[in-house]
Amino acid sequence: MRLTKLAVVAFILNSLLATSVFAQEESASARQIIDKFQTDLITVMKDGKKLGYSGRYDKLEPAVINSHDLPKIARIVVGKEWEKLNDEQQKKLTDVFSKLSIASYAHNFKEFGGETFTIDSEEETKMGGVVIHSHLDLPDDKPVKFDYMLKEKGSSWRIINIIANGVSDLALKRSEYTAILQREGFDTLIAKINEKIDNYAKQ
């Protein structure tokens, strides 16, 4: 009987311990997502020349998909215009937007010159998000600040926005995308995104 009680206490203690460890992991996981993504980027940069554009794209595709919430970002960048798109258009936009995101990483992070990422701090936002403050040290230039905004998705965290040296990628893209949608329409927006993907692949 005593043994059973002890077992129950041990079980409860164990559960509590597990819960607190889980809570710690949860709060640390946003940081882990960024840490893993930045490590992946540096790894691809180091092999950048050897891999070529398509090699970098293939390596970065899972890294970007597993760290970014691309469908959500695609929805936010068109703002209220999202509701006006039909299912097929929404799917098309999410698809080309995802390709553009991976392509721009593959194009812009193509070689390694001694750059290093450092995570400086993290903070929670009022709406339950997490901001990871980090910076990229460049060998011959001022460091670039990278602030990542993450939201919880299922049991993990995903990047929603990146603010580089104070410029929000999400806000910038939303201004551009909504302006094009309103002035020139959906087909032009898709054509312009595809043109950018092609240009990245050519260079």
Binding site: I76, E123, E124, T125, K126, M127, G129, V131, H133, K145, D147, M149, I160, N161, I163, N165, G166, V167, S168, L170, A171, L172, R174, S175, E176
Partner: peptide, 25 residues
């Protein structure tokens, strides 16, 4: 957009507010 945001960031001495993206959502 990048010009206006960059100027705003200089005004705040490069500090990024944790509410910026909540505001955006």
């Amino acid at each position: 957009e990048s010009f206006l945001q960059w100027r705003k960031s200089l005004e705040n001495d490069g500090k990024v507010s944790s509410t910026i993206d909540d505001d955006l959502m």
